[in-house]
Every structure is written in C-alpha cells, then in structure tokens.
Design a protein around this nucleic acid. Structure first.
Lengths: 368, 368
DNA sequence: GCGGTTTGTGCGAACGTTCTCACAATAGAA
DNA sequence: TTCTATTGTGAGAACGTTCGCACAAACCGC
C-alpha cells in the first residue's frame, strides 16, 4: 500500500524519492534530454509507487501548447454535427489531442462566448462552423493572434483560414437534374434559407441566373438552392417561384406548415427536393400525413442520408454527405497547422454520394 | 489601432500601461480583493486597449480549478450519446464550464486512456458511461483521488459516485406487459446482451425467475431483458428461450442476420420488442425486407424513440428516454459536487415515456 | 595528453496567474 | 490624542512543469 494519495504528487516528490533532482525526474518523465539508464529506472519506479500523474496545466503553461483543439458546432445533438464530431475526435485522439466542445445553436452571441472561452483555455486550434459568413471579427482577430482555424460546412469570406466543405451546389444540381431527366417539370424545393445578406430571394434568383454570385461563402442551403436553379437553367426550364419554399428558420413547425401547404396545393409539384435532414424528416411526415404515395404521387430526393431512408418501403434517394470524413479532414488540417505547416490556405471541397433508391419515377401526368 | 497583438498580453503589460502593480491589475481583472474606482477604470481601459485575454491555464494552475468537466461517452455519433451530451453542454455552458469530450467505443482500454487524458488535464469532474460495471479500478482510483464522478446510463458496483440512469427494467416490463395484454403469447426480444459476468444467458434467466439478481449494476440491455422476463412472470407465462435473440455484439450485420432468422421462422413471434435504437432500426429494415405488415403481421415496440417512428405509416410505439434531461441531470450533479456538496451518493433514476402509436394490435391467430 | 563531441546532472529561471503578507492611508470611536 | 476598522496598494511567493545554462565525466581519434 504505502502511498495511495495519488492526488498531489508532483515531480519534486518523485525526484526526492528517487534521489535525483527535479530536473532529472522531469527529463525521464517528460522524455526530453539525456538521462542515465539507472536514473530512468529509479524515477520510473518512484513515479509508479507514488501514483504520479503529470499536470498538463503546468506543462502547457510553459510549452505554450495544450494539445487540445476547440470545436464550435451548431448543435451537437443533430446527426450532422454528431458525425463530424466523431471524425474530429477520432483523429484528435490518435494524436493524443483532447477536444473541447461547445455549441453555438447558430447564434452569433453564443459563438462569441464560445470562442472566447476556448481561447482563454488556450486551445491550440479551432474548428468551427461559423454563424456569420460575412463579418466575424472575432474569428479574424483569433486568426490574427495566431490561433489556427479550420472552418467547416461554410466559409466566412476573407478569413485567412482553411476550410472543409461539401460541394453543395454540385450535389443539389445533380439531384435536381436527375428529377428533370425523369421528366419532372414542377419540382418543389423546401429549404431553410434563413438569411442572405444582399437582398431578398427574388434578387438571389435573378443574380444566380445572370451568373453574378460566387457561391463560396454562401450558406449551404443557399448553395443548394443555387444548384437547384442551375440545374433548371441547364435544362432550359423556367423557374416557378412558387415552388421554392423558404422556411426561413430552422424549426420543425415552420417547416411542417410550409411543406404541408406546398403539397396540399391543387397544382402541387410532381417531385420534391428537400435541402437538409430536418426538412427531409418533416417532408416525410407531411407526405405520410397527406397519404401521398412515393414515388407514384410524388418523387423525392433528400439532402442528407438518414437511416430510415434506406429501409422505408420504397427507399428514399438521398444525397449522403461524408460527415465523419469531413470531421477527420478538418482535424487533420488543424493538426497540420498546429504542427507548424504554414503553406497556403487549404479549401477542401468534399464530394457527396448520391444514394439511388426507389423514390424517383416518371411524373404521374406523363405516365398514362 | 496601436497595439493589435492580442497574442501575448499578460496582466503585467496591462498593469504597466495602467501605471499600477500587477497585483492591483489582477485584482481588478480577477474581481477579488479591494481596488479603488480610479484604478479599476484605468486597468479596464488598459486591458481593453491591449486586447488582454486572461490565460485560464495560469489561473487554473494556482486555483486548482479548471472549470472544465470531462465526458467519456460511448460513441458521440449515436443519437443516444449526442442527446445526452447536448444536455451536459447546455448546463455546463450556463455555469461557464467547458466540456472536454472523448469516446470510449465501449472499449475498456480506450476508456482508460481517455480518463487518464482528462485527469492530466485536471478536469474538475468526470461524467462517464463506464464500460465495465464490475472492476474499473481506474474509476475507483480517480474517485479516491478526489475527482467527482457521475455515472450515466449504467453503474459500476461499489463505486462511490453519483449516477443518472433510466428505469430500464420498468420500461421494458411495462412495454412487454402491454404486448401481453393485447393477447400476444409469443413475443420476441432482440437485444445486444454482450457480456454478463456471472455466466450464460440461461443462468441469467433462471436467476431472474428465482429473484436472486440485483439489476442495479447490470448493463441496460440486461436490465431490459430482466423487464421482459419479469413481465412474463407477472402474467404467469412461460419463457420460450428461442424467442430471446442475443446479438452478442453491437453491430448492424450481426443484429440483422439474427433478426432475419427470428422473423423467418415458421412459428415466428407475433410481437417483437427491440431493446435499443440500433436493434430497432435493424429490425425495421428486416421487417420491410420480409414484407411483413405492421401491426397485422407483427406487433412492435421499440426501445428508444427515433424520429422515423413517429411518421412511418403506422407509427411505431416506442419507449422514449429523456436523454437531454439525463445529460442535464448529470451535469447538475457534477457541478454540485464540484461546488463542494458532499452529501450521500445520489442515484437518480429517470422515468421513460411510452409513446403509444399504431404498431401494436391483437395477434393474428386470434383475430379470425 | 589534447581538443572535441557525446552523455549526463543539477541549479534556477521562466510561464501568467492568484494570494498571502506587510504596510499605508483614511476614517470613526473612545 | 490614540486605538481599531476599513480600504487600498505593491512585493514576492506560490502553482508544477519545461528549459537554458553551467559543469563534469566519459569517450574518441590523433
């Protein structure tokens, strides 16, 4: 038994018991500098006997590295962030890094507090899904002060930081093209589309058509609308503004009522494209409530591949984002920066996978 | 402009610029001790001008508190842990605490490493879903060394630490009773049931029947089997051992083949009880693959309420765990302990909610 | 034997805070 | 006046590490 107060054992105690200086004990335990075999042994034994556990705080204070990366997610509860976080945590753990987690709920104020907290705790790097893609002075400041940042899911324009995003525009465009190819001419889209800083949605549509928008620092849902518009233009099909359902907020109730309204119309669309996981779940709810059959009454392609889409009666064709891979990529980028890599900004744009299942068919009116 | 190197600003720099001692500056910024109004003002101004950000590491080193709680989850990616984590993070944030996250993948070795990492980083408290409910010397050691621990989802026997769990036995028992009441006599159960330290599953069944098992530090899936058995005994119905499908590992493929086998039998059960979210999803997949209709061909009650269960054609009756509440409760407990509360061990057992939907009916053979 | 490298050790100064002292100055009470 | 509180200040010692430096012993080729 002897000593079992594993509590406040310092390197000095270990050194004393081993009969060496604290410096020597530090060297063997920290694995730096030279030490003789005998002393190595003595110190190790002493440390084990005393139940010594290094204090990372003290180490970090002097080395200036905490081996901790901060993560600001939107909402950890969502499968989207949960999977990304999984990827981050895996890579971090493999390198002996810890993950300090906060969520912003997509609220700027909360993001501010979170970043502040993380920086005070001296994280070595920050992975963040930024709320505000235009301003974000706090992120510019953090980057300027030397904290490496990797953006995920979206990019704040002008921020000197790496990013990992999905080709949302391409994915949406491909899916909508799929529906168009099947013969659909009235394709509804349900998307969040909370805010676009440069005007209303009509302006957005006009500017996409005229080709004067750079999708890079758009929010994902806007990029997906972009893809929707692009596919229509490529097929030389006019946009029916009424088929674009802008929920305006990331809420189930708002999404539900908007979707119900769209699908209850006399001239309802023959196909539906949902722009994210929440919209997909809500749309599915609405579809079963209205007793619509997929794909005979309505074709459907969903952004985000949720588990139920594969085992529903006809499987739902869905765009699968490589979420854990995104997290892994982000973690690898941040670790590289922490490791001192100082090349150009890296902007990794990952590709989706279109899971083709049974929710798309020829539109009803053409089937006769 | 002036100074924008928000990087290495220490309290000494602030003090120098304000024309006071570091002690006074510390008092103003740290909010302890006495300071005159004038100095307060001067220091605040100086800090703001220099973009001073306190170094939590240095503070923690001396105060002995990091305002950080460590979390060891099984798999953050699962909706189960994601929701719990959400609850934890919310409560922690509200109190200015950070959350240091790791996952164990239910592997003891990984849990060991995780706990080690967290303790080295000097977390103030630990919330953990322990892998091993019997041994766990590392947790005993951590508790002994003064680190408060809150266990979640399950309890290691004899560990002096609070816990937050669900009444798994009660929930399972109630659900199975529901099926029995509807007239089912052949009720299948699909559960993970990876390990039970005291013997094989037959022994377990026998010992439950004879009433010689304390369910407190059983793994949830075993507690749920316990409830299944209990409900049968209460209804004086014999257990058919062949209806108890032990998957043995938390894997989709194993679960799928086991479930397919069960549902393909000539004398397949008339009702099914799935013991967790993964089993539920897999079972649903199997059911649709086999083209069985719910509830006419098979009644179903699932443990864990997943989003698709509410909007499927007939809704699936499910046991909803109050997950975020569990996380919140755990966080509150740990914060209380960190705050110095030293009463008796607290073991909070939360209640489930049975979401009654359309997946249960009278068994087919009695319907005539 | 002599410089030069390699290997090993201990002292003490960092790191950026908090916190204990000692010490003033002011104010009110006796 | 003189004694106690109250309010304020700064010097300097913690906290538990890492790291620079000085110094020694050993080994090496020549």
């Amino acid at each position: 038994m002897a000593d079992k107060r594993a509590d406040k054992m310092t390197i000095a105690d270990v050194a004393l018991r081993a009969g060496v200086s604290t410096a020597t004990a530090g060297r063997v335990l920290g694995g730096y500098g030279y030490t003789s075999k005998e002393n190595k042994e003595k110190v190790r034994l002493s440390a084990k006997a005393l139940g010594y556990r290094p204090n990372a705080l003290a180490r970090s204070l002097i080395t200036g590295k905490t081996k901790t990366i901060g993560v600001v997610a939107g909402d950890i509860q969502s499968p989207f962030y949960a999977s990304i976080l999984r990827g981050i945590a895996d890579v971090a753990r493999a390198q002996g890094f810890g993950v300090l987690l906060t969520n912003s709920d997509e609220l700027l104020e909360r993001e501010l507090e979170a970043v502040q907290l993380l920086l005070e705790k001296q994280i070595d790097g920050l992975i963040i899904a930024p709320c505000d893609t235009s301003g974000s002075r706090h992120l510019h400041a953090a980057a300027a002060s030397g904290c490496p940042i990797v953006q995920i899911d979206r990019r704040v324009s002008g921020l000197p930081a790496d990013s990992v995003t999905l080709d949302n525009r391409g994915a949406a465009s491909e899916s909508v093209a799929q529906l168009l190819k099947a013969g659909h001419r009235r394709i509804g889209i349900v998307a969040e589309l909370e805010r676009w800083e440069f005007g209303d949605i009509e302006t957005f549509i006009d500017r996409v058509i005229e080709g004067s928008i750079d999708p890079a620092s758009l929010f994902p849902s806007w990029q997906r609308l972009f893809g929707y518009l692009e596919a229509h233009r490529a097929a030389a099909i006019c946009i029916d503004r009424s088929l674009i359902v802008r929920v305006g907020t990331y809420s189930v109730t708002a999404a539900r009522s908007a979707t119900m309204e769209l699908l209850s119309r006399a001239n309802r669309p023959t196909a539906l494209f949902t722009a994210d996981g929440l919209m997909s779940a809500v749309a599915m709810d609405a579809i079963t409530s209205l007793n619509l059959q997929i794909p005979s009454d309505l074709s459907l392609i969903c952004f985000d591949d949720l588990d139920w889409m594969s085992f529903l009666k006809p499987g739902i064709t869905a765009i699968a984002q490589p979420l854990t891979e995104m997290g892994e990529a982000a973690a690898r980028l941040i670790l590289a920066r922490i490791g001192g890599e100082d090349g150009e900004e890296q902007h990794q744009v990952l590709k989706h996978r279109l899971a083709l299942r049974g929710s798309v068919s020829v539109p009803q009116d053409e089937m006769v």
